[in-house]
């Protein structure tokens, strides 16, 4: 390698990809789409092997002791990076909004949590707000179908993600979102809530699906696998066929992968 390319390489920010347990387990395609987008935006990406999950399920259920231990691990693993990017508003919110609360008052850790919080981003927020990522012309034209967008709660309220995915979809893939009513309302996922109170959760997700149908959507997008699995799973149970997809995949132009509520063999 020449010295020049070394310099170039060093000027690129080094991103630690926090893959999230659900993407890791259920939908690796989202992870690869994320890496592709980050690289296109001019980042170097690493995926620390030691990572597991942000610990939100335990935190939200009152297991603070274990949640603290998990948080400390995540901090140790990710603090060497310039940025931590997460293809999920929920896990990004856990790291950047809740870790500092969780570790408040613990010497050394409080500060480390705050430092990590500052450099942790949800994917579309990072691409837009930090990298200023735009394409001179759309990379492909996916405008043939009707897309709607579900603003996932934590992405919207904890990570301030609202315009960014819409802007990227327009810019990269010529996709204009057809907004449904109540796009900022919860889909009924809520982590363990979906399994603890399934009937109420069903009531909420049915409202979401009704509204997507009313908007004439063919594809529902969102930035959180949990919410998307909830909507997709309910859609499948109801025998409805609006496709549910993660925004990262569409941004990467990957409409060829089966939807989350895809058909079997």
């Amino acid at each position: 390698m020449t010295k020049k390319s070394d310099d170039q390489k060093n000027s690129k920010p080094l991103v630690g990809l926090f893959i999230t347990c659900l993407v890791d387990l259920m939908r690796p395609s989202v992870g690869f789409a994320t890496v592709e987008l980050l690289e296109q935006a001019g980042c170097r990406v690493e995926v620390p092997e030691e990572q597991t999950c942000c610990g939100k399920p335990g935190y939200n259920s009152g297991d603070l002791a274990n949640a603290r231990d998990v948080a400390k691990r995540v901090i140790e693993i990710f603090e060497p990076y310039d940025y931590v990017v997460v293809p999920s508003g929920s896990c990004a919110g856990m790291i950047s909004r809740h870790y500092p609360k969780l570790l408040a008052g613990i010497p050394r850790w409080e500060n480390r949590a705050e430092v990590l919080a500052e450099k942790c981003f949800e994917l579309t927020g990072f691409l837009t707000d930090v990298m200023g990522f735009t394409a001179p012309a759309p990379l492909s034209d996916l405008s043939g179908r009707t897309f709607t967008y579900h603003d996932t709660c934590t992405g919207l309220r904890e990570m301030r993600v609202k315009a960014q995915p819409r802007q990227l979809l327009r810019n990269l893939r010529n996709v204009e979102i057809t907004e449904m009513k109540g796009t900022e309302e919860c889909c009924g996922f809520g982590g363990t809530f979906a399994a603890k109170m399934p009937d109420i959760s069903r009531h909420m997700v049915d409202a979401k699906i009704r509204r997507a149908e009313d908007a004439g959507a063919q594809i529902i997008l969102g930035g959180d696998m949990g919410c998307l699995m909830n909507i997709a799973g309910r859609m499948k149970r109801l025998g409805k066929d609006i496709e549910v997809r993660h925004v990262a995949e569409v941004l990467a132009g990957r409409l060829d992968i089966p939807a989350i509520n895809g058909k079997g063999e």
């Binding site: 992870g31 995926v47 997700v205």
Partner: peptide, 22 residues
């Protein structure tokens, strides 16, 4: 977590973990 499948399906995963594929 059978509450999950009481009202909805669990979508099939792609079959390999991201970490594995990466």
């Amino acid at each position: 977590g059978s509450g999950w499948t009481k009202v909805r399906e669990l979508p099939s995963p792609e079959g390999r973990t991201f970490q594995d594929l990466w």
